[in-house]
Design a protein around this nucleic acid. Structure first.
Lengths: 157, 157
DNA sequence: TATTGTTATACTCTATAACTATA
DNA sequence: TATAGTTATAGAGTATAACAATA
């Protein structure tokens, strides 16, 4: 049925009109994401924090003694994916895994002094990167963009 | 210098405030992208077109005899990445590689009848997926979102 | 039985570099 | 020399499934 409808519409589609793709939210979302992601990595440098590592560090700094499971849930990724991220942060001396009294399965993540300082420095770099990348958007537009993206995020819960 | 500034701000940051991350465009962009990408794949099914294959097919349908190099440039990826995409579309019988008279290095890509029909059917599925995912956004908001994402894309040129 | 952290494994997407055949 | 398509390869990022320790 969908096929027949599609075929019927096909007769009306001119070959030169390629607005299809450019009008899709998903396509624009991905293209924008790729640009922002690449610029983030460029801004933080070859040996800098990867986006996902920066995000994890941010939550660890702000939520003391967060567990890996909780962190994974908040970041929207699987628990198993957090191991490499935590290893990365631990190897840099930014985070330590701490035993939790009362539940020996759990390891609480805590940012070290160096980790907190590194986070705040990275945050400034990230904010500069975003300011540069969003220079064509007014502050109001940037806020609108974040609000609209959050609406999409809420549906995906 | 940036370090000293960051350290100074650190003293003012309360541990409970984790607006940092949630206010960053990049973070929201990625989270939204992940959701839309996953729903796209779900909508088109296990053996359906992957997002990048759908995008390529869209351009091939709309720009007859486009070359792979041109297509790669328009999609913002490397030439080498297009080989697998073209192989995929060719294996499905949706696209053929055609020799171009006058330059034997080039292979023009052309959508078959089946390819055109499959594209239009997929487009309907994609539009339904986007309508579902963007149900919390008004048509005006969706348009605003696309406009803002395009502004980001333009900077990354 | 369920949960936490972990490992092993595989898959997608992408890039870089080098090759070939042409130009 | 330069370009189009291709191959080989590697590196992120992610998921799934299974495991040991613990609850």
């Amino acid at each position: 049925m969908a096929h027949a409808t599609a075929a019927r519409q096909g007769a009306q589609t001119s070959p030169e009109d390629h607005a299809d793709l450019e009008d899709l939210v998903g396509y624009n979302l991905k293209r924008a994401y790729v640009i922002v992601d690449a610029d983030f990595r460029r801004a933080l440098g070859e040996d800098g924090l990867a986006p996902r590592v920066f995000s994890a560090l941010s939550l660890i700094v702000h939520i003391p003694d967060i567990t890996q499971s909780d962190l994974a849930r908040r970041l929207g990724i699987e628990r198993s994916g957090l191991v490499a991220i935590t290893d990365d942060l631990e190897a840099r001396g930014f985070v330590i895994r701490q035993p939790v009294p009362g539940d020996r399965r759990v390891q609480a993540l805590a940012a070290t002094k160096a980790g907190k300082a590194a986070y705040l420095e990275a945050l400034q770099t990230v904010r500069a990167h975003e300011a540069r990348l969003l220079s064509d958007l007014s502050p109001a537009e940037a806020e609108t963009l974040v609000g609209l993206l959050r609406k999409i995020r809420q549906i995906g819960d």
